Simulated assay, not measured.
Amino acid sequence: MLRALLAFILLAAPAAAAAQDEFAEFEAFLEEFRRDHSTPSLSAVIVRDGAIVWEGYFGTYDDEGEIPTTADTTYSIASVTKPIAATAILAESLAGDLELGTPMSTDADWDGTCEWLSTSAIPFGGGGADRHGNPIAPMDCDRPTTLAEMLDMRANGDTFVYNPIAFARIDRAISGAGGRALRAIVRDRVMEPAGMRNVALGWHDPEQGDALRFLAPPFHPVGDIMAKQALSDDDFRAAGGIIAAPRALAAFDIAYDAGLLVPPALRKRLIDDVEIGPLGDYRHGWWLEDWAGERLMWHSGWDEGRYSSLYLKVPRQRLTLVVLANTEAVWWGNSLVKAEVAESPIARRFLDQFVAPRRKD
């Protein structure tokens, strides 16, 4: 027995070392990125085939720069909240407790918000063009946008326009139609079945656990000084507000791919059945993009001057990257009408190192 155990250890050790070597270059890249972008704390995980295969925790997360970033360190994930909230809403609908045909106008302030946005200088409100010259349609207040259409970012017309303010009205529309509070929907339909721990659904979450105790405070460069920033007082909405560590997002990712949250057919539809053009698409809380023959599902997060995040899935390869930071360094200024995660330096490095080589095999 002892001889067999020793043989197993001798065989397993090189395999474990080889597995770590696979990620060493990417780990070094993230640490260099963190330093180059003056980011005190950065955390990342890679999920492959339904399990975490690598984790990296870089820098420190306290005011004095003395407490190392760990797996428990949490961040505001900003708009990465959207695919989580959208998945919970879809699950609530499939359970028969919510009608996706509910009009957004059940939110009592929807019409006023739309009138203000559509006449504003905000590009996703009043319209305009992105940096590539692609037109951004103004918000269409005559269009009876439904909850299902809002999950696909269709408040501006038949073609998607990333409209976070309109998306943030989803919980009000649900409540206006007599539905449950969004916090309860997300906790029951996603957090509990996925086993997500130490997650705060906004500042007013009565069950926030240790998510705030381990929160990395946000910083922003002011000249040569990294200045600590005031925390946002925005509460939880479908558009943002979750505070979590990467392992919680990995738990969501694993449960989502396993079909524990919504039926696999919904995920398959986004991967195989939705035809997208050169600008990509937005469906069910996900940006969709084709890169080198691979369908990408992703979301970025940007809490201006405070936090940034990236959640990138390569579903056909069963591969996922999550990166969270307590500065806006991870944000790269994605277009409102074009999915372009490959423009992110971190995403591009990940795709080039882990996705492209596997396509050649």
Rank of each mutant, 00 (worst) to 15 (best):
T60N: 12
F23G: 07
E192D: 12
P138R: 07
G157K: 05
V314D: 08
L319T: 06
H37E: 09
F236G: 02
G178H: 06
I271N: 02
D72H: 05
D111A: 06
S344K: 00
L336Y: 07
G96A: 06
A12Y: 02
G202N: 05
A245W: 01
P246L: 00
P315L: 09
K313R: 13
R189E: 11
E304Y: 06
L266G: 00
A325N: 05
G223M: 00
D21C: 00
D303Y: 09
S43L: 03
K268Q: 13
R34L: 07
D142I: 14
I346F: 09
L117M: 14
D224W: 02
I136A: 02
E32K: 04
A248D: 03
D272F: 03
A148D: 13
G128A: 11
A239K: 08
I52W: 04
A71L: 08
A91T: 15
S105T: 14
Q229H: 00
R172Q: 11
S118W: 10
T146Y: 09
V341Q: 02
D257W: 04
S120N: 11
H132K: 03
Y75I: 04
V53K: 01
A12S: 02
T70L: 11
S38D: 14
I346Q: 05
E22I: 02
P218E: 08
V190S: 09
I346M: 10
R172G: 07
R131S: 12
E92M: 08
G209V: 12
D62T: 10
T60W: 08
F160R: 03
G179V: 11
T146E: 13
Y61S: 08
D111H: 03
R131F: 10
R143W: 08
S93F: 10
G195A: 04
L11V: 15
L321M: 06
